[in-house]
Nucleic acid binder design. Structure first.
Lengths: 227, 227
DNA sequence: GGCGTGCCTGGAACATCGTTCCAGACGTAG
DNA sequence: CTACGTCTGGAACGATGTTCCAGGCACGCC
């Protein structure tokens, strides 16, 4: 009988950190944030909850790893031949699209900035801010301003997709909110009522970019010869 | 014996929604987000968990009510005689200070925008954006840009105070992060290393306001005669 | 005065979660 | 063949949000 020594356990596959993280991502994508359970994860991997803890310290680390696994590739582009503005826009869009594809990432990014994924974003933004000619003393302010805006939108997108019931479409949800807005008290909420229509029609992505541009305009306008 | 008819139950006080909410705020302030438990809350009110559910539908509503109770008074000022910029700054500072005093509010605001507290902020910001002379088509973008920035900072403040161990001071925490930054790989994280010093010295409040000003500059610069 | 009715209480119980524990299977080195 | 360290997975623990329900209390009606 041939030696079966080289088989990697005769189980299907030997359960590794990578397999766990990718199963977690799949679970999060299909069942949402609340669906990531060590028991559900164990079932998906045909094992028990205890086995997972051998490869991962806990849920916090697992979520961080899952987030990094999704965001890292999304922001990996080169800014070689692009204006600083274009590079920042591209970077911001990378984050946006990652969240759009995996809504749970929004919550996670907002909760765990200063960790690998967002730290990478911060570094990339900072370099472009430098390239923009912002004086050194103002670079931190400019970069973290952009970061905070991005994180704010991240959280909002997460909220919007979480609030919407699983079945309903995103446009239905916006429609519902817009309708609620237009029924607010005309005295107390004059402005909100007024822009309810714009909320209904607006394009998330475009609006997001417009916000980025607003900040970029502010940054460049302030640090120019005669501003 | 005098009639004891008019006494409001001879228990201490008859347990009302207000009493529950204010106990929840007190609990959140002392023990943090994770400390708000229906059991702990019941003990504080010398009752059982079940009684609370008669006045409040669940934890979500309780958190929302607690947040509103803290934020509503914090943003209740009149913008009568102030420039739009000043009014927006004052409003933003109101939110900031509320979060500073009650860190759990940050998480909550970021999670539940489009609800009473943040809706009020949105309305107030919107009016000032109007007063700024922003054309109608761009008002929604400007107002939600500001909102998203505020919500981003809200989330970050919450993260910063949550991450820091209960005992450590905030400056210690910043110091630790700054040190970690300055020990990053010089090639991969040149910019981040560079601004580590600014992170250590920076004033949260001032930095926050600077971000607001950046966006305000962007808004006004864009919508001016020859922009 | 009795007495039912409905608001409100609070303790027990349930389902589920993150996490820990541990007996044992597996492959490898001696 | 045996001993050991790696890895498994099911059971069990403590805590949580929530539901259930038997009972207490004040008030309105006879």
């Amino acid at each position: 009988m041939a030696t079966r020594t080289r088989r990697p356990r005769q189980r299907q596959e030997p359960l590794s950190r990578e397999r766990i993280v990718s199963a977690a991502v799949a679970l999060l994508d299909t069942v949402g944030e609340g669906g990531l359970t060590f028991r559900a994860l164990a079932e998906r991997l045909t094992t028990g909850p205890g086995a997972i803890y051998w490869h991962v310290t806990g849920k916090t680390e697992l979520l961080a790893a899952a987030t990094d696994a999704v965001v890292a590739p999304a922001i990996a582009g080169d800014d070689a031949d692009a204006t600083p503005q274009e590079a920042i826009r591209a970077l911001a869009l990378g984050v946006f699209d990652a969240i759009d594809a995996h809504p749970w990432v929004g919550t996670q990014l907002a909760r765990a900035s200063w960790q690998p994924p967002m730290l990478r974003v911060f570094e990339r933004i900072g370099r472009q801010v430098q390239a923009l000619g912002v004086p050194e003393a103002a670079q931190f302010t400019a970069a973290s301003g952009l970061m905070n805006y991005i994180l704010g939108v991240a959280g909002q997108n997460a909220v919007n997709t979480r609030t919407a019931e699983p079945g309903t479409d995103r446009t239905e949800f916006l429609d519902a909110v817009a309708t609620a807005w237009s029924e607010l008290d005309p005295d107390q909420y004059a402005f909100t009522r007024n822009v309810a229509g714009q909320l209904r029609e607006h394009d998330d992505r475009a609006e997001y970019l417009a916000g980025i541009d607003l900040i970029l305009t502010g940054i460049t306008a302030r640090h120019r010869a005669s501003g």
